[in-house]
Amino acid sequence: MQQIMTFIDQVSRYQYLQNALIAAILVGIICGVIGCFIILRGMALMGDAISHAVLPGIVIAYMIGASFFIGAVITGVLTALGIGYISQNSRIKDDSAIGILFTAAFALGVVLNSTLKGTSVNLWNILFGNVLGVSRTDLWITFGMGIFVIVMIILFYRPLLLSTFDPTMAKATGLPVKFIHYMLMLLLSLVTVASLQTVGIILVVAMLITPGATAYLLTDRLSIMLVLAAIFGVISGVVGLYYSVLFDVSSGSTIVLVASILFGLAFFFSPKQGVIWKALRSRVSAS
């Protein structure tokens, strides 16, 4: 209790902590929401791919002095397009195409970065996040992206639901299913970039998948799943940040650990899907 009070006191006093807290909350919400669609479309690996593929974009943007948000989104989307192109034009399947392209992009990013020597991008911060280094400008960009992502999801909720649930019928009624797929990839890149400083490239996939998966175990409706995923994302962000400050470890790892613990709880104790209740129910019905 004492420690929590100290934490609140510190947050009210230091602006960098306020920035970090707001960033963690925003990232929790948008990752949770986009993550639900990633899970239901079976694209968890794609989320991992795009998050790694933003690295060369960041480095190139740094080289030419452009905004690294733009660079990251460009290489993220290019990788998504490349994956689609390879799997549609050869016998290579989606998961292999993903494995080839994201590692290639990531490796390219590492090589480019090491050519910069001395003034290179701090790789550690990009890989594992440095939420305490979030500036006001970063925050505004994250905020803008968050609003954009949420508005898109609300506006296009029905087409997203239908094309995720039953792509064949979606096509038959004239929905541009492919276009929706690439729009989602664009949103995914945006979300990844927005989450870079909070959780970092390596762990952003956890923020995409884990809160959504936790919500999936607790509800039978997509709309509720989206809200729950956002809530779990926020809880993970805030509690994770608290432990990160308390133990002085990288914020990405504590945030992801909190998200994983929430998932563990839902996995064992969810009223409908929980392993424990399922076992109990089958025992009762057997006797």
Binding site: L40, T164, D166, T173, T219, R221, L222
Partner: peptide, 18 residues
């Protein structure tokens, strides 16, 4: 169809109106 999808019967039928 993925029958684990978080969607209830009335939502599925309403998709016919989308």
């Amino acid at each position: 169809i993925d029958f684990d999808f978080p969607v209830i019967v009335e939502d599925v039928v309403l998709m016919g109106r989308y």
